[in-house]
Every structure is written in C-alpha cells, then in structure tokens.
Design a protein around this nucleic acid. Structure first.
Length: 271
DNA sequence: AAGCTCCTCAACCGCGGTCAT
DNA sequence: TATGACCGCGGTTGAGGAGCT
C-alpha cells in the first residue's frame, strides 16, 4: 500500500507548539473543520506538517479532552482495562472519556506499571541504596492539577484553556461517550471518532471540565458488550495486525464469555 | 546554592489499515 | 488491481522540571 511520505521536513517547524500556533490551529479547525490533513496547515498558515497538526488537535486541542491528574477511578479503570486489552491504548482511551491514548500510555508507564510491580521496585530500591525516589513512583510526586508547569505546557494549555474550559460539560461528555458507543469501540479510532463527533460542537461556556460520579458509574459500568454491540463480529486476523476494535472486541468477548480471566478482571469498572 | 539524578509528558517516528482514484 | 494519500496506532525520545545530596 502506498504510504504517505513522512512530511517533508523542509521548512516545516517541529517541536513544541506555541500559543500562537495553537490558536491558529484551533481557529482554523473551528471555522472549516479538519478536512484535508495535508492541506490543513497550509490553509491555516502553519508551518507544520499535516500529521503534526492532526496530532496536536486530536491529543491536546480538542475541546472534549480532560486535563489534569487522573482520578483513582480512572487509574483503576486503566489497570483493569489494561489487563483485558493490553497495550491497546486507544481502546482503553475509548472507555475513558476525555482522556487520550497518549495520556493513558504515559500514566501507565510512569505510575501504574510501577505500582503493579511493587516487589520488583522494592528490590531495585534496595539495590540502588535508596537513591531513587521509588516512593514517588508509587505515589506520584506532588503535582498540582495538570502536572508540572512546563514551558511547552503553558503554550499547550493556555490557548486552549478558553476553549478547554469551554470544553465539556458533563452533558457533552456523556453525549461523546454515547457517540463513542455508537461508533463503538469498533472503530479503534476512539480519539479520531470522538474528535469527529465533537468537531462541530464547540460551545463557549466557561466551566471547568468536570465529570461527576454518576457519569463515571454510568460510563464505566457500561458493559463492554453494550459498547461494542455494533454489527456482526468478524474475527478475522484478530491477532498480529492492527485489527479493528471490532476484532479486538470479539476476542474480548470470547475471553469474557469463556470465563478466561479472573472474576475481578471481568467485573469491569463498576465505580 | 549548585549540581546531579530521576521523572514526566508532549511530540515525533514509522508502520499498517483504509479509502479514493 | 495498483497506486497515492490520509488516518490512527503504539513505541520511543528528549527537554525541562522536581527532588535529593
């Protein structure tokens, strides 16, 4: 299959996005949507490759993205979902509204993975003469919401905060989830699909993104079957390829119906 | 206070899948 | 059917901040 040549780097900017670039991109997408990925940066007047723009939008600028520290519920969900799905971050993200695969991946590698391997860590602790801050690994270092104030994060967050604070009310999030449920974990493109779902739905409220408890219990207790009950399941090539989420969910269902896992795992996030 | 080490996370890379022509 | 382009994914990297000595 033909593959897009990696965006020619000539003259194209790389690295952290500036506030201006973010503004430009958001404004452009708000006005015309993100149609042609490659043409987008040109149309918007950005010296970035289309891929970079898409990534920036999907992972950080979308209004429905939730920022800040992960709650205990979210972390538990990630752990449980990871037990089921493995490193299918997008599939996990599909079940954690407002979170991106990248975020989840980072949290997993930085916190949760270590938390699940306490014994190993302790051994390392002893081996490394207590120099490493393992406690901080198990219990993340103090970080105010949103993590550290990086230079790039200022750029990343500030331009967005209007829109992001904008962002999503609970209602919006819920509708996003139902949209995700419709498209279903069956696309495997959670971020993308929700992005497209949300694409035209900017509002200009200025509430902070908040998901209340009932939302979580509603969302996380939603049986996977329901989420993925879209169309026939055709388990071809389910392994070894980046199969669709439908394929993955087929195996998930097989796994669950077969009682292949322990009960706790199967009892998905009932928070 | 300064230097060092470790941690975090945004961004990039490269691949496969899918769609349009 | 072949080709080109777009899209999304998972893995990796590196800058910069935080904590420790």
């Amino acid at each position: 299959m033909g593959r897009a040549p990696c965006c020619e780097k000539m003259g194209l900017k790389r690295g952290p996005w500036t506030q201006e670039e973010d503004k430009t991109l958001v404004a452009h997408i708000q006005s015309v949507g993100h149609g042609n990925g490659r043409a987008l940066p040109k149309q918007a007047g950005l010296l970035r490759c289309g891929k970079s723009c898409r990534l920036r939008w999907i992972k950080y600028l979308r209004p429905d993205i939730k920022r800040g520290n992960f709650s205990d519920e979210e972390e538990q969900s990630i752990i449980q979902l990871h037990q089921l799905l493995g490193n299918r971050w997008s599939a996990i993200a599909a079940r954690l509204p407002g979170r991106t695969d990248n975020e989840i991946k980072n949290v997993w590698h930085t916190h949760l993975k270590k938390r699940l391997e306490p014994s190993e860590q302790e051994q390392h602790d002893q081996a490394s003469a207590g120099k490493k801050r393992k406690a901080a690994a198990a219990v993340p270092r103090k970080r105010e919401s949103g993590g550290k104030a990086r230079k790039t994060e200022v750029a990343a967050t500030e331009p967005v905060s209007p829109e992001r604070s904008v962002s999503s009310t609970v209602t919006e999030s819920t509708s996003m989830v139902s949209a995700a449920a419709e498209h279903g974990g069956n696309s495997g493109n959670s971020a993308g699909s929700s992005a497209s779902v949300k694409e035209e739905s900017f509002t200009s409220e200025s509430e902070d993104f908040q998901i209340d408890e009932s939302f979580w219990s509603e969302t996380l207790s939603m049986p996977l079957d329901d989420i993925n009950d879209v169309g026939p399941m055709e388990p071809q090539d389910a392994f070894g390829s980046k199969s669709s989420d439908g394929d993955m969910d087929y195996w998930l269902r097989v796994f669950m119906e077969g009682g292949g896992g322990d009960e706790d795992v199967l009892d998905l996030p009932q928070i």
